[in-house]
Simulated assay, not measured.
Amino acid sequence: MAVNMVEGALPLDMAPANASAVDSVVHQIRELIADAGLKVGDSLPTERELCAQFSASRNTVREAMRILKAYGLVDVRPKVGATITDNRMSRAFELFSFNTMEVSLKTFSDVQAFRALLEVGSVEQIFDRLVDRDIDDLRRINADLSRIHDMAEASQVDFDFHVRLIAILDNAAILDVYKVMKPIILRIMQKGKTRRTFKTETYSEHEEVIDALSARDRLAFQYRLRGHLMKGFKYFNEEMEASS
């Protein structure tokens, strides 16, 4: 997933002929890192050395380093210089954390369909990897819904349940995507719900999914999980009727 973290900056792996001086230096530094085989923790040449190597002004190099730092690829500290890092996923988390997008019916539909693709669509892989510990962990997490005190806590438990479910896949990339989407998923989970909804409906729906896993019933798992993910349509419809 490509996320442009700096307004106006080109993707880091692109430097067309008409690129700005800063974009060109960004691209050249990326090539330098790759060609020299630099790894996380290694130091880049000094600012003076980069200026000479790329025939660029000090301001151009400094701006290029600022962009690379914003992308989470370098860390620049006074008297230490620039070192290679890899905070790209953290930068993406920060971007989504400040996402104030309203949860419309279209947003709900798109996000839940994507979640269904990950969770329901991975049924074969989930059942192939499933062990008793996975079921025990899911029941333990779901039991926490009966002890919730507020909506934020309840939605977090709901999110933890689904993260633990897809963790069965043992796929770090999928988990990273899910975590990036966390803020919007939490808002969807809270849409139209109450504390009682979490303690009764959500809890029961989770238990039905766990029961299907325990019984190794693939069809029941798909049916119950898809129904659970799409349950929120009811709350959107109720809100629309109440406001009309």
Results as ranks from 00 to 15, higher is better:
Asp86Ala: 03
Phe98Ala: 10
Leu145Pro: 00
Ser146Arg: 15
Thr85Ala: 06
Tyr223Leu: 12
Pro11Leu: 04
Glu124Trp: 08
Val111Ser: 03
Arg218Ser: 13
Gly227Phe: 06
Ala15Lys: 06
Asn171Leu: 07
Arg147His: 08
His206Val: 02
Arg115Cys: 14
Glu208Gly: 08
Ala113Asn: 13
Val120Cys: 07
Val103Phe: 03
Gly72Asp: 05
Glu208Gln: 13
Arg133Ala: 12
Val111Asn: 00
Lys182His: 07
Met14Gln: 09
Ser155Val: 00
His162Val: 02
Asn237Ala: 11
Val25Trp: 01
Arg48Phe: 11
Arg195His: 03
Thr200Asp: 14
Val40Pro: 06
Phe236Gly: 03
Ile135Asn: 01
Lys193Thr: 15
Leu165Cys: 02
Tyr223Ile: 13
Gly81Pro: 06
Met65Trp: 11
Phe114Gln: 13
Ile148Tyr: 01
Lys234Asp: 10
Ala172Gln: 13
Asp170Cys: 07
Phe233Gly: 05
Ala172His: 12
Phe93Glu: 09
Asp132Lys: 09
Gly81Asn: 00
Arg196Thr: 15
Val123Ser: 12
His149Gln: 12
Asn237Phe: 14
Ser214His: 14
Glu201Arg: 12
Gly37Tyr: 10
Ile29Asp: 00
Glu201Gly: 01
Ala220Ser: 15
Ala116Gly: 08
Gly72Met: 03
Ala172Arg: 12
Lys69Pro: 04
Glu208Tyr: 09
Ala56Thr: 01
Arg196Gln: 12
Ala242His: 12
Ile184Leu: 13
Arg218Gln: 14
Ile84Lys: 07
Ala21Cys: 02
Ser155Ala: 15
Met151Asn: 07
Asp13Met: 09
Glu7Pro: 05
Gln125Pro: 00
Lys39Phe: 02
Asp137Trp: 01
Gln125Ile: 08
Leu105Met: 14
Ala56Pro: 02
Cys51Phe: 00
Ala242Met: 10
Arg164Gly: 01
Asn87Ala: 05
Lys106Asn: 09
Val25Gln: 00
Asp144Tyr: 05
Asp158Met: 01
Ala167Cys: 10
Arg216Pro: 01
His206Gly: 04
Asp158Cys: 06
Asn171Glu: 11
Met14Ala: 13
His162Gly: 01
Asp170Tyr: 08
Ser122Asp: 02
Glu124Ser: 15
Arg88Ser: 15
Leu73Cys: 05
Leu105Gly: 04
Asp75Val: 07
Arg147Met: 11
Arg164Pro: 02
Asn142Cys: 12
Ala116His: 07
Arg48Thr: 09
Met230Gly: 05
Thr200Ile: 13
Ser146Thr: 13
Lys69Phe: 08
Ala9Gln: 08
Met5Thr: 09
Phe221Gln: 03
Leu32Phe: 15
Asn4Trp: 00
Asn87Gly: 07
Lys106Tyr: 08
Leu32Gln: 07
Asp132Phe: 08
Asn99Cys: 11
Asp110Thr: 14
Asn171Phe: 12
Lys191Pro: 00
Ala116Lys: 12
Lys39Trp: 06
Val76Asp: 04
Met230Tyr: 15
Gly41Glu: 00
Gln190Asp: 15
Gly121Lys: 04
Arg88Leu: 11
Leu12Met: 09
Tyr223Phe: 12
